[in-house]
């Protein structure tokens, strides 16, 4: 079963266009606008990084709500249509895996493009701060998506986005005090991987649990 085909058919058409075309292009256009200083010219560059982080985190959580909508809740759905298919298990597995991969690709691609565009010839200190900010954003995005899958209400999701963004700023400041950037980034990347794995395992567990009274 083709993983990407499974995932794309799992998405409603507008969501498919939004995720694959509108969102990445909007992010890149925003970066270009910033680079050319068409807008926000008076702001220090660090704020532009924060804006991109905010966009990525909010957009990923919102899109996840449209795709999965609190699917980890115990009293959520039984996914009976998928379960009564002989391919159901593989299908669900493919969706969860490709969703994680897509998220990694989209979050990191936008991050890399942002860094390349905005901080090519900037001083090292700001660039490092931005890298730290971006990796921390990836961690809080994956964490927030994981938590939000336990809640169906968009309001709850938005509250978690707000909490995540606030926490992220504090964590970035704390991490910036550590001298060894390579270690910090490695730890964040490992945490990202752990979160994505947890997301996949929980998704499969929810699916398996729905076959039983657990």
């Amino acid at each position: 079963m083709n993983m990407i085909k499974c995932y794309n058919r799992f998405l409603a058409k507008p969501i498919f266009w939004l995720i694959n075309i509108v969102y990445p292009f909007a992010a890149i256009i925003l970066v270009v606008i910033m680079k050319e200083e068409i807008l926000f010219s008076g702001l220090p560059k660090i704020f532009l990084g924060i804006m991109i982080s905010t966009l990525v985190l909010s957009a990923e959580v919102l899109m996840d709500h449209w795709i999965f909508g609190g699917v980890f809740r115990k009293d959520s759905y039984n996914l009976e249509l998928i379960k009564c298919s002989p391919k159901g298990r593989t299908y669900w597995k493919n969706i969860l895996i490709w969703d994680s991969l897509r998220r990694v690709i989209s979050v990191f691609m936008i991050g890399i493009i942002t860094l390349l565009f905005l901080y090519n010839n900037e001083n090292k200190e700001i660039a490092e701060y931005e890298i730290l900010l971006y990796f921390t954003t990836s961690f809080f995005t994956f964490l927030c998506v994981y938590v939000c899958r336990f809640f169906q209400s968009p309001l709850a999701n938005m509250i978690f986005v707000y909490i995540s963004l606030s926490s992220e700023m504090i964590v970035v400041w704390l991490l910036s005090q550590i001298q060894n950037m390579a270690v910090v980034v490695s730890v964040i990347v490992l945490s990202d991987l752990a979160l994505l794995t947890a997301n996949y395992i929980t998704g499969m567990k929810v699916f398996e649990r729905s076959y039983r009274d657990e």
């Binding site: 058919r9 058409k13 909508g69 249509l81 298919s85 391919k87 299908y91």
Partner: peptide, 15 residues
């Protein structure tokens, strides 16, 4: 619940 009718059609064709 957030699936659309055409999504159901597409998903069934895979399942």
């Amino acid at each position: 619940p957030h699936w659309t009718v055409s999504q159901v059609r597409e998903i069934c064709s895979i399942l």
